[in-house]
Every structure is written in C-alpha cells, then in structure tokens.
Design a protein around this nucleic acid. Sequence first.
DNA 1: TAAATAAAAGATAAAAAACTCTTTTATTTA
DNA 2: TAAATAAAAGAGTTTTTTATCTTTTATTTA
Lengths: 151, 151
Amino acid sequence: MHLDEPMGIFSKTCEYAMRAVFYIAQKSEEGQKVGIREIALHINSPEPFLAKILQKLSKDGLILSSKGPNGGFYVDSGGLQRPLADIVRAIEGDSIFTGCGMGLSYCSESNPCPLHEDFKKVRGQIVVMLQNTLIGKFNEGLIAGQLTLNK
Amino acid sequence: MHLDEPMGIFSKTCEYAMRAVFYIAQKSEEGQKVGIREIALHINSPEPFLAKILQKLSKDGLILSSKGPNGGFYVDSGGLQRPLADIVRAIEGDSIFTGCGMGLSYCSESNPCPLHEDFKKVRGQIVVMLQNTLIGKFNEGLIAGQLTLNK
DNA sequence: TAAATAAAAGATAAAAAACTCTTTTATTTA
DNA sequence: TAAATAAAAGAGTTTTTTATCTTTTATTTA
Ligand code: FES
Ligand code: FES
C-alpha cells in the first residue's frame, strides 16, 4: 500500500469540504462572502475540485452562494448553528455513522463482527464529535489565528 | 457521492485483511492450515484480490504460509498474540494512527486544526481498539459461532 | 446596456483502489 | 518420478476518486 499523502478516516472530498465550510463560516461571521479562488488558497485545495464540492453543498442547502461581483459563498446565522455532521453526511453518506468497522454489510447486535463492541464506541465518539461541532464553533479561534485550515 | 456499498473508516483491502486474519487465526487454533478459496468463501471477499492481500501480509511476516497439498495460510502461537494494529498498519500505513482528521499534512499541538482536540481522542480510541485486539482474541467466539466474518 | 465578476454545469483526464486472469514455483503424496 | 495441490508473482482490467478545463448563466456596477 503506497502512500504519498496520508489517508485519514475521511475522504479528501470530505476533508476539503470541512475545511472550506469552516473558512466560509469565519468569513461570514466577518460579514463577507468569499470566492472559490480565495477559499482554495486558504485551505490548500485544488480550486476546480473544490468548486464541485461547494456546488454540491450549495445545492443541498448547506451553504449559500450568490453569483456576480461581490458574490461568493457564505452561510447565514442558521447555517452557523448546523453541525459539521451535516456536511460529512452530505459528502460521505451515512455509513460512517452506522456501518460496520470490518466491512460487513450490516452492523447488528444479533450478528456482530469481532470488533463490534469496540467499534460502536469509536463510531459513537465520531458522531459526538461531528454533532457537537457547530459550523461556527471555531470562528473566534480562526479569526485569532490560533487554528489552521491550510497545510 | 454515490454509495453502492457503504464506505467505512478502513479501506476494503484493510477490511478483507482483518476478516481474513481472524478466520486464519481461528483455523490455526484448531490446528488447520487454510487455503485462499476457503478463506474467501467464509469472509465473503473476491478470491484473487484476497490472494494479493495475503501475499503481502505473508511477505511482511504477519501470517505464515506453505505451498503444496495440505498447505495454506496459518499463524503460530506468537502470531495469535500480535495486535490487529499490526495488520492495519501494514495495509493502511501509519496515518490512521497519527494523521490529521481534516487532512492537514501534519497534526500538531502548536498548529492545530479545528477538530484537533476531539479527533485526537477518536484516534486514540482507534489505536486502543486495534492494539488491544490480539489476533487470537475472538477464536472462542468465532468457533462457537457467536461472531460473524461474512456479510 | 456593456463590461466585469463569479458561480453552475458539463465534459474530460489522471491517479488510485479494487478486482481478475495467467503463469510460475514449491511441496506433497501416490 | 508424476500428478495434484496450493501459494507467489506478474500482467492486466475495471471502477471510483480526485482533479482539470471549458462553456454557460446569473448578477452587479459603471
Ligand atoms: S457488526 Fe461490525 S461493527 Fe457492528
Ligand atoms: S491538526 Fe488536525 S487532528 Fe491534529
């Protein structure tokens, strides 16, 4: 298994989406809309690929966008209150929240895989992390420069 | 994002590897070597693809193999005591143990991403799960049929 | 209304992961 | 020693993910 760039538990698509949304949230809190170029630059992602991701999130209503000069992506105050889980679910689907850690097509108490008990806890902690993380949660830290979104 | 089969936190390669090793361990405890066909059948994986995975694990010394009639894959008593983490690390590399949850090229205290604190805990729990799970740990449950390796 | 700006959409392209097939090598046993 | 068995190795193929490029549509402002 060859690894140029490390592979985490989320797909790249999802990682870009999470970073982008935090960046947009930060700018929205400052009252600004922000273009793809600027987002890509600040979260270190390929610009046209990011465009696709943001289009999807926008179509799903998870972020907002407007065209034309002074346009760009943004979130409203309601959006700032949504959990990061919504983003992840839109990109990765549900399986990260409910799937079996060993790849069985189900995850059930009555027919558990060997990792079932332990994995349930891990999954639970991931869910808690993503549900507790509201999109606007880190705006202060980001604005203050204590937190990072680019490599 | 289209999902035929759900995507978990491990790659399919890794899922097959984990399931296969548990199956081999179970058979080894019963004193039997086991062929690829039988493993693939019992863990529900594509046989030639599984062959590749087992070749890699074998080359890395994580499982043992012998050719010819009555040959097959097996683990010795030392192998039964190794943690599942060794398998996962061989297949997925290190990043699942150390990487950043949001895809930054580093994960550091001094320059953390927004999820850093929460994600450290998740990662830690994954490490604990994989380190505490010795390969022979579930042999009784598997033999007794209380645990499942196929879909 | 014309020019500039910026996202949306669509069509490809490249890379990686998942999967298959064929040939070779080693081992056993009859 | 010949036949059978089973893994090893190598060379593909297919599918999915990641990334790029081009054209279109909408909006703003000068
Ligand atoms: S059955 Fe595998 S995690 Fe529940
Ligand atoms: S910097 Fe992202 S998890 Fe540590």
